[in-house]
């Protein structure tokens, strides 16, 4: 893995810029992403169903499935990191319809999710769960954007600085993690 060159990405970057990424590529993310997890996605779904519009744009954005801790140790989040993305697969098509270019999270996605990535040409970037004290040092700024009543589940603009991730599902729908599991499977 160490010999694979790391691709540095400036965010936000639209789908076209991410289309050349291949499942298994290692990336370093810098720039702005939006946090959205369970509660914010549910609220977005309800809002859109009523014909409303969210108070932030999603076109070309990377949605980070995360809920940070409060500021600590002189940094914007003491700890921040990805939460399980598969839990939010039911909201994926809604995000892609609004122009979201990628999600950033952790863990495997469903087969249905892979199909959505292929259909919309979007990618899924996976980080490792539970490295959040380290990841907290790779965030320059956190600004609440909307729905602050949701607490850590609100929408935050997070400015990343060299945040490492893996392309787990690419724009063709190829799933990297699935292949990795079969490679080490001994049953």
């Amino acid at each position: 893995m160490g010999v694979i060159p790391v691709i540095e990405l400036r965010l936000p970057a639209g789908r076209e810029a991410l289309r050349s990424l291949k499942a298994g590529d290692e990336v370093l993310l810098s720039g702005d992403v939006l946090t959205m997890r369970d509660a914010a996605l549910k609220r977005l779904e309800e809002l859109l169903a009523e014909g409303g519009e969210p108070p932030f744009g999603l076109e070309g954005q990377v949605v980070f499935h995360a809920g940070p801790t409060p500021p600590a140790a002189g940094r914007p989040a003491g700890a921040i990191g990805p939460t399980t993305s598969a839990r939010m697969d039911r909201f994926l098509e809604m995000l892609f319809e609004r122009g979201v270019a990628a999600t950033l999270g952790k863990g495997p996605r469903s087969a249905e999710a892979a199909a959505h990535h292929r259909a919309y040409g979007a990618v899924y970037l996976a980080a490792v769960g539970g490295l959040s004290a380290l990841y907290g040092g790779m965030v320059d700024e956190i600004e609440p954007l909307a729905w602050e009543d949701l607490g850590p589940e609100g929408v935050f603009r997070v400015r990343l600085n060299g945040f490492p991730a893996l392309v787990a599902v690419d724009a063709e729908g190829a799933d990297h993690l699935e292949g990795r599991h079969s490679r080490y499977r001994r049953r």
Binding site: T69, A72, G78, G129, G130, S132, A133, G136, G137, P152
Partner: peptide, 15 residues
């Protein structure tokens, strides 16, 4: 990560 969390006094995980 565990060493960093203890040294900085920040949580091991955001959860």
């Amino acid at each position: 990560n565990a060493r960093a969390a203890t040294e900085l006094g920040v949580p091991l995980c955001q959860d």
